[in-house]
């Protein structure tokens, strides 16, 4: 059949470009809307402002961490230590806040430390040539074990006035939602239009070709991990400030939630493709599903199974779509 090999028709509307360029993102957006309508009709309280706030604001930190994770995965690497790092940085932030340091220090320190730690991880990956899954597996142990050893699991309480940035609002919208939206749009624009953004896609898509075209792969990988550390630092501050206490344990399975948001959002684990808009939408979708199960009176114990099925369905659909394109 020659029709199968025919080039894409030259006439393409804006809508078609949108569909072809952001297929995965649109599917997830449609899923979120459909879910909200169906569950909202079944139980109107689902669409109440307080529930929507808890869905969006309470999970924004996952979406923010998934932005950095998406960049790491697009560059052909992975970070399984992200949950532990968020836990450690949140405790660092809280400890500084309680210790009488200025509040801006408590907010800035996790971001700086996040950048430094992940730049170190990136250096081990790029220069020592240890696969990123091995380095971050080791980091996971070090950070998790170190956190519990140092804090002995004690909670941090008595946080100072004005520290809880995640509970602030601007124009009636919770601060975490602002962070999520602004950072997602900025990162998506930057990934698409800056030279370094395209470099990330290039080293993930074909490292040899990237090297041949003059990209310094080692430096770029360190930079990608450092940028990821920046997003992890912000995620940690949002996580630390959303409650009145900070638990000094690592949120269980947080790394899997973040990686899953990236992958379901359309980032190919093989590297080279995907956008951070998709990962943010996927993080919202997961939160909405978790919340809707409660409103549908489904036992919360089935939540993970539903999530697992959803991930599997998304991945299989994605693979099927890709094979059709080829």
């Amino acid at each position: 059949m020659s029709a199968a090999a025919a080039p894409v028709p030259a006439r393409s509307s804006a809508l078609r470009r949108l569909v072809s360029g952001y297929g995965q993102e649109l599917i997830i957006l449609a899923a979120i809307v459909a879910l909200m309508i169906v569950v909202g009709l079944y139980n109107p309280r689902f669409m109440s402002q307080s529930n929507l706030t808890s869905i969006f604001a309470g999970n924004a930190y996952i979406a923010v961490a998934a932005i950095g994770m998406s960049m790491v995965i697009i560059s052909g690497n992975i970070d399984v230590a992200v949950g532990s790092l968020i836990g450690v940085l949140a405790v660092l932030s809280g400890t500084l806040a309680v210790g009488g340091y200025p509040i801006w220090v408590a907010w800035a320190a996790p971001v700086v430390v996040g950048i430094l730690v992940n730049a170190g991880v990136g250096a081990l990956v790029a220069y020592a040539r240890i696969p990123s899954i091995v380095v971050t597996l080791g980091m996971l142990s070090i950070l998790k074990g170190g956190l519990i050893s140092v804090t002995a699991g004690a909670w941090i309480t008595g946080l100072p006035e004005g520290y809880a940035i995640a509970q602030a609002r601007l124009f009636g919208v919770p601060a975490p939602v602002w962070f999520m939206v602004v950072l997602t749009i900025a990162a998506a624009w930057w990934m698409r239009n800056s030279g370094f953004g395209r470099t990330i896609y290039a080293i993930g898509g074909n490292p040899e070709a990237a090297r041949a075209s003059g990209i310094r792969i080692e430096r770029s990988i360190v930079a990608v991990f450092a940028i990821h550390g920046f997003f992890v630092g912000i995620a940690a501050v949002l996580f630390a400030t959303q409650l009145q206490v900070i638990q000094s344990t690592v949120p269980p399975n947080l790394e899997l939630t973040v990686i899953t948001a990236s992958v379901v959002g359309g980032v190919s684990i093989l590297g080279g493709t995907g956008t951070v808009i998709g990962s943010t939408l996927a993080a919202i979708l997961f939160a909405a599903i978790g919340s809707s199960l409660i409103f549908l009176n489904v036992s919360a114990y089935w939540l993970r199974a539903v999530q697992g099925l959803l991930i599997l369905a998304t991945v299989l659909a994605d693979m099927a779509r890709r094979h059709r394109i080829r």
Binding site: T260, R304, A305, G308, L309
Partner: peptide, 20 residues
């Protein structure tokens, strides 16, 4: 499906079935 992704999905699925 790349093994990392396939088993990440079934990690959630199988644990979810166990919990459910």
């Amino acid at each position: 499906v790349p093994p990392l992704i396939a088993t990440l999905a079934t990690l959630a699925l199988y644990r979810g079935l166990a919990e459910g």
